[in-house]
Nucleic acid binder design. Structure first.
Length: 895
RNA sequence: GGGCGAAUAGCUCAGCUGGUUCAGAGCGCCUGCCUUACACGCAGGAUGUCGGGGGUUCGAAUCCCUCUUCGCCCACCA
C-alpha cells in the first residue's frame, strides 16, 4: 500500500476527500465521551455575502488549531459556525447587484420586493463562505450552522429589545446622530470612523446689530471661525466662553447671519475653547452634536433649524439662499465661501487639519443629522463587563488589549441601534395615530393604550444588535435548551482587535445581562494580514491573496502552517501577494518533508512490528533512547505552547522535531538496521512507528490533512487522527533523559569528523581513520557505546578509540598519511561544564538564601562573589520592597 | 491632544522571568552533491553598532529615561 504513495505530496488530490470523510464520520460534532467541561469556541460569523479572504483564513486557522488540539486531548469540543446578515454591507452589495442586473434602485421596487431579492441572494450564495472554510480544514460542527436572521435567532433579538425596553434601558429620542448620506442611514459612534483630513478654517464676519434704534454708534463686527461655512444658515446663536473678556460686552446683543441677515443672539457657554479660532463659536444645533447640547443649555426648547436633506444637499427652506438650495454640501461649501467673500464677509481662510468621521462601510463623510432614533442606555450594561475584566474573570491575549476594552467601557456612551435600512431585524415597536408606542415581541393587533390601529417602525436594528447575542442565541436562547446549558459559557474567543468595541465588549455585556455569565473567559486577538509594505490586505487595494488559490497551489496545510508560524502571539502576519512562493513555499516544503519521512517510515512497517511497550529497552541503542526523549520533549513543548496561545512556538517546535531530529538524524542513524546491515531492525521499526505517531499527532492541529493522509497508513491506526483522543504518544517509561545529553555529544563528534573530511578534502567514500580522544575513562566508555552511531552518521569507518587524554576531540589519519586533530572541547566540555555550573549555582543559591534569611533582620551589606551575587541582591531588593509595602499598608490602615 | 505598538542578518520575523537556547529561524546568497524517503532535497559556509544616546546592574536585544522613524487606536478644538 505504501509503495503507491508518490514521492511528492499532492494536497489537491487528497484534501477534499479527507475532509469529506471527516464530515461523513461526524467527527466535528461534540463528543460527550470526551468528558469534563466542554471546550467551546463560537466563530466570529462572517458576513453572509463575504468571500473568504486572508483575514478569515488567518482567524479561522487559529480557531481550528485550538479546537483540534483540545479535541485530540480528549475534551468535548464545539466550534459553532454561522453567518451574519450584516445589514448595511449586505444591503449595499445586493443594491449594487440589483442596479447592474435591472438598472433599478431598491426604491423602484419597494421594500418587500427588495428584501425578498436579498433573501434569494442569500439563499443562493450565503453558504459560500462556509464552504470555503471547509477548504482550509475548519472543523466546525456544521450541523449547528446558524444565521443571525434565522427565526429562532430573530426571536432572541426581539426578546432582548423588549426586555431592555421594560428595564428602562431602551429609549427613543431625538439626537444629532451620525448619518451616512450614501447609505441613507444612521450609524453608531463606532461605525463613524475618524480620519484626518486637510480642510480649511474659514473666518467669517458677522455684523453685530445696533443696540436700540438709531443709537448711531459705529458698526461692530465679530469673526467666527468655522470649518463648515455652508451651515451658517442653520445658526441659532454665537457663543463665547463666559470668562472671555474680549467679548463680554457683546453678551445679550444680536449678530446677523451673513447672506441671509437673520438676527441671532450672542451668548456664553463654558464649552467654548477661548484659544481656538477667534474664541467665538456659531451654534448650529441641527448639524453638530455639541451645538445641539449647547442649544439645549441655552434654551428650554431651542429652535433647531434643519437645512440639510437626507442626501446631504442644502434643503429647500427659507433660511437657505435660493442659489444654494438643492446643492450638495461640499459644492455648497465652496459656493458659500464665494458668496461670503463677494459680500465682504470672509476675513481669511487658513488650512486646517482635522479628524472627519466617515462611514465604515462606504467611506462617505458622515453628516451629523438631527433625527429620532432608538438608543440603548449602556452604562448599566457596561458595569458587570468592566468588573469582570478588573477582577480577572476575563482575560485578553495579548494582555494590552484589556486596557483598550476597559477604557471604552468606562467611557461608554449610549448606543444608537436603529438603522434606516430594509435588510435586518425590523424594530419591534409599533406606533398608533395617537402617538403611543407599543413594544412587543409579537405583532400587536392594536395599540395597547388607545386600541387604535398600529404601524410598525420602519427601521431595522444595527447588525451588531443581533451579533452581540451570538454566543447564546446560537444555542437556542431564550429557550432553555440542553445545548445552552451544556455549551454556555464558552472558553475562547478568537477575533481581531478591530472589533473589540463593536462585538467583543458588547457580547460580554450581553452575556452578563441576559445570562449572568460572561460568554467566554479568554479573548485571543489575532493580528492583521498585511503585504510587505505593511499595508492591510484588502480587495479594494488590490493587494489581497485569495486563500483558495493558495490552497490549490500549495495546499491547505501550507496555508495554515504559514499563518500559524508567521505570527507570534497577536502580531500581524506579512504575506507577499506577488510572491506566493516565498510566502507559502517553505510550509509546502515542510509538508512534503513530512510526507517523505512518513513514506519512508511506512515503507518499513510492512512487516509486523512489536509495540514499543513490549520491547526490552536494553535493546535500545543510544539513538533510540535519544529520539524517544525528543518525542517526550517536543510533546511537552508543543502542548505548553498551545496552552499559552504561542502557536508559532508550537509550529517551530514540531518543525524542528520532524525535520532536524527525525529526518536528519534519527532516520539516518537507523538505516543500517532497516537495511539489514546491522541487527535490531525490529526495535528500529517499532521506534520509528512511535516517532511518526508522535509527529503526526502533534502536527495535526496545524496541518490536519497531510498528517491524516499518513496516519491512515500506520499499522494499528484506529480511525481518524482527528478523533484519536490520544495526545501524548511516546511512552514515558521508555524515555532516557541521559540519552539526550550523550547523543548531543555524538552529534558533536560527527560534526567534527565531517569537518575533518571537508577541511582536508577527503573524497566521499574514502576511508579515514578517526581516533577519538576522550578526557576521561567515563567518556571513553560512553564513546564505545556510541561508536556505531558515530559510524553511521558520519559515514566514516573504521573508528577506533584512543587512550584518554587531556584534550577531547577527534584525530584522523588522512589518505596521504598526515594526521589532523579537531578538538571537541566546545561541543562536549562546555556542555558538561554548563550542567556542572548550573548545579553549583543552585547549590550556592540555597546556601546564600539560608544565610541571607538569617541576616535579613539585621542589615543587607553582604556582597557575595561574582555570578551568585545578583540573585542575592535581587532577593534583598524584593524583601525591601515587600517590607516597604507592608509598612505603607500599615500606615494607610493607621495601625 | 491622549494612549498603545514596532525598529534584531539582504528580506520576513522569533527571542517569554535580565545570565548558556542569546545573538536565532525561514527565505535569499556562496561551495559541493541527482548518496536507493524527499532537488519542495542533502552536506557545509558567509552575513548583525539588536534604530541613536544616556542610565540601572557583576551582567542588558531584554529593565528605566530620552531622541528619531514608522504604524494603530481613542478624542465634543467648531
Amino acid at each position: 500500500m505504501t509503495a503507491t504513495l508518490p514521492p511528492q505530496y499532492d494536497p489537491s488530490s487528497l484534501e477534499a476527500e479527507i475532509y469529506q470523510r471527516w464530515k461523513e464520520a461526524g467527527a466535528f460534532a461534540p463528543d460527550p465521551a470526551g468528558g469534563g467541561a466542554p471546550y467551546v469556541i463560537v466563530i466570529p460569523p462572517p458576513n453572509v455575502t463575504d468571500r473568504l479572504h486572508m483575514g478569515h483564513g488567518f482567524n479561522n486557522t487559529l480557531q481550528d488549531v485550538l479546537i483540534r488540539f483540545e479535541r485530540m486531548r480528549g475534551r468535548e469540543t464545539l466550534w459553532m459556525p454561522g453567518t451574519d446578515h450584516a445589514g448595511i454591507a449586505t444591503q449595499n452589495v445586493v443594491e449594487r447587484l440589483f442596479a447592474t442586473e435591472t438598472g433599478q434602485t431598491r426604491h423602484d421596487v419597494g421594500r418587500d420586493a427588495f428584501v425578498e431579492r436579498v433573501w434569494s441572494y442569500v439563499r443562493e450564495t450565503g453558504g459560500t463562505i462556509l464552504a470555503q472554510l471547509e477548504a482550509i480544514g475548519a472543523s466546525c460542527d456544521w450541523s449547528r450552522t446558524r444565521f443571525t436572521l434565522d427565526d429562532g435567532y430573530s426571536a432572541a433579538v426581539r426578546r432582548v429589545f423588549v426586555q431592555l425596553h421594560q428595564e428602562g434601558l431602551m429609549y427613543r429620542g431625538q439626537r444629532v446622530i451620525h448619518w451616512c448620506p450614501r447609505c441613507g442611514t444612521a450609524l453608531s459612534d463606532e461605525e463613524a470612523e475618524f480620519e484626518d483630513e486637510e480642510g480649511a478654517l474659514y473666518h467669517v464676519r458677522y455684523r453685530v446689530r445696533e443696540q436700540g434704534a438709531g443709537s448711531g454708534e459705529q458698526e461692530t463686527w465679530i469673526t467666527v471661525a468655522t470649518t463648515r461655512p455652508e451651515t451658517i444658515f442653520a445658526d441659532v446663536a454665537v457663543v463665547f466662553h463666559p470668562d472671555d473678556e474680549r467679548y463680554a460686552a457683546l453678551e445679550g446683543r444680536e449678530a446677523e447671519i451673513p447672506l441671509i441677515n437673520l438676527a441671532i443672539p450672542i451668548k456664553t457657554h463654558p464649552l467654548v475653547q477661548r484659544d481656538f479660532g477667534t474664541g467665538l463659536l456659531k451654534v448650529t444645533p441641527a448639524h453638530d452634536p455639541n451645538d445641539f447640547d449647547i442649544a439645549n443649555a441655552l434654551w428650554k426648547t431651542p429652535e433647531r433649524p434643519d437645512i440639510m436633506t437626507a442626501e446631504a444637499r442644502l434643503a429647500d427652506v427659507p433660511r437657505v439662499p435660493a442659489a444654494l438650495r438643492g446643492v450638495d454640501r461640499f459644492a455648497a461649501r465652496k459656493q458659500t465661501v464665494v458668496l461670503l467673500e463677494a459680500a465682504g464677509h470672509l476675513v481669511k481662510t487658513e488650512p486646517h487639519r482635522h479628524a472627519v468621521r466617515h462611514c465604515y462601510r462606504c467611506q462617505t463623510v458622515v453628516e451629523p443629522r438631527l433625527s429620532d432614533q432608538w438608543f440603548v442606555r449602556m452604562a448599566p450594561l457596561a458595569k458587570p463587563a468592566l468588573d469582570a475584566y478588573r477582577r480577572g474573570a476575563l482575560a485578553f491575549v495579548p494582555e494590552r488589549w484589556g486596557a483598550v476594552y476597559e477604557r471604552w467601557l468606562s467611557e461608554i456612551r449610549d448606543w444608537n441601534i436603529s438603522r434606516q435600512l430594509w435588510w435586518g431585524h425590523r424594530i419591534p415597536a409599533w406606533y398608533c395615530a395617537d402617538g403611543h408606542i407599543t413594544v412587543a415581541e409579537t405583532t400587536p393587533t392594536a395599540c395597547a393604550t388607545c386600541g387604535g390601529a398600529v404601524r410598525q417602525d420602519d427601521d431595522v436594528l444595527d447588525t451588531w444588535f443581533s451579533s452581540w447575542l451570538w454566543p447564546f442565541a446560537t444555542l437556542g436562547w431564550p429557550e432553555q435548551t440542553v445545548d445552552l446549558k451544556r455549551y454556555y459559557p464558552g472558553h475562547t474567543l478568537v477575533t481581531g482587535p478591530d472589533i473589540i468595541f463593536f462585538w467583543v465588549a458588547r457580547m460580554v455585556m450581553g452575556g452578563y445581562h441576559f445570562l449572568g455569565k460572561p460568554p467566554f473567559r479568554t479573548v485571543f486577538l489575532n493580528g492583521i494580514v498585511r503585504d510587505p509594505k505593511h499595508q492591510k490586505m484588502s480587495k479594494s487595494k488590490g493587494n489581497g491573496i485569495d486563500p483558495l488559490v493558495v490552497v490549490r497551489d500549495f495546499g491547505a496545510d501550507a496555508l495554515r502552517y504559514t499563518m500559524v508560524a508567521g505570527s507570534a502571539i497577536g502580531t500581524d502576519v506579512i504575506l507577499d501577494p506577488h510572491d506566493l512562493e516565498t510566502s507559502f513555499g517553505p510550509a509546502r516544503n515542510f509538508a512534503n518533508k513530512l510526507w517523505n519521512v512518513g513514506r519512508f517510515i511506512l515503507s518499513h512497517l510492512d512487516v509486523p512490528t512489536p509495540a514499543p511497550a513490549t520491547l526490552d529497552s536494553c535493546q535500545f541503542e543510544l539513538a533510540d533512547r535519544w529520539i524517544l526523549s525528543r518525542c517526550q520533549r517536543v510533546t511537552t513543548d508543543v502542548t505548553a505552547a498551545l496552552e499559552k496561545f504561542r502557536l508559532n512556538d508550537a509550529a517551530a517546535a514540531i518543525y524542528h522535531f520532524v525535520w532536524d531530529q527525525v529526518a536528519d538524524w534519527y532516520v539516518e542513524q537507523v538505516k543500517p538496521r532497516l537495511y539489514g546491515e546491522a541487527r535490531g531492525g525490529d526495535v528500529a521499526r517499532a521506534i520509528l512507528a512511535e516517532v511518526l505517531r508522535t509527529a503526526l499527532t502533534l502536527l495535526h492541529p496545524i496541518m490536519p490533512f497531510v498528517t491524516e493522509a499518513l496516519w491512515e497508513h500506520l499499522p494499528r491506526a484506529q480511525g481518524s487522527l482527528l478523533v484519536t483522543r490520544r495526545w501524548t504518544v511516546a511512552d514515558a517509561s521508555l524515555v532516557d533523559v541521559e540519552a539526550e545529553d550523550r547523543f548531543a555529544r555524538v552529534q558533536a563528534l560527527v560534526v567534527a569528523i565531517r569537518q575533518i573530511r571537508a577541511e582536508y578534502g577527503v573524497a566521499p567514500g574514502t576511508a579515514v581513520r578517526v581516533q577519538v580522544q576522550a578526557a576521561t575513562i567515563e567518556a571513553t566508555e560512553a564513546f564505545q557505546a556510541e561508536q556505531r552511531t558515530v559510524e553511521r552518521l558520519a559515514k566514516v569507518a573504521p573508528l577506533t578509540l584512543g587512550p584518554p587524554t587531556k584534550e577531547v576531540g577527534a584525530s584522523a589519519v588522512l589518505p596521504d598519511g598526515s594526521a589532523v586533530f579537531v578538538p571537541l572541547g566546545d561541543a562536549i566540555d562546555l556542555h558538561r561544564e554548563r550542567r556542572r555550573l548550573t548545579a553549583e549555582v543552585a547549590r550556592l543559591d540555597g546556601l546564600l538564601a539560608a544565610q541571607a534569611a538569617k541576616l535579613a533582620n539585621i542589615q543587607f551589606t553582604s556582597r557575595a562573589p561574582a555570578h551568585v551575587v545578583t540573585r542575592e541582591r535581587a532577593k534583598e531588593q524584593a524583601w525591601r520592597d515587600q517590607r516597604a509595602t507592608v509598612a505603607e499598608k500599615r500606615a494607610a490602615l493607621g495601625t
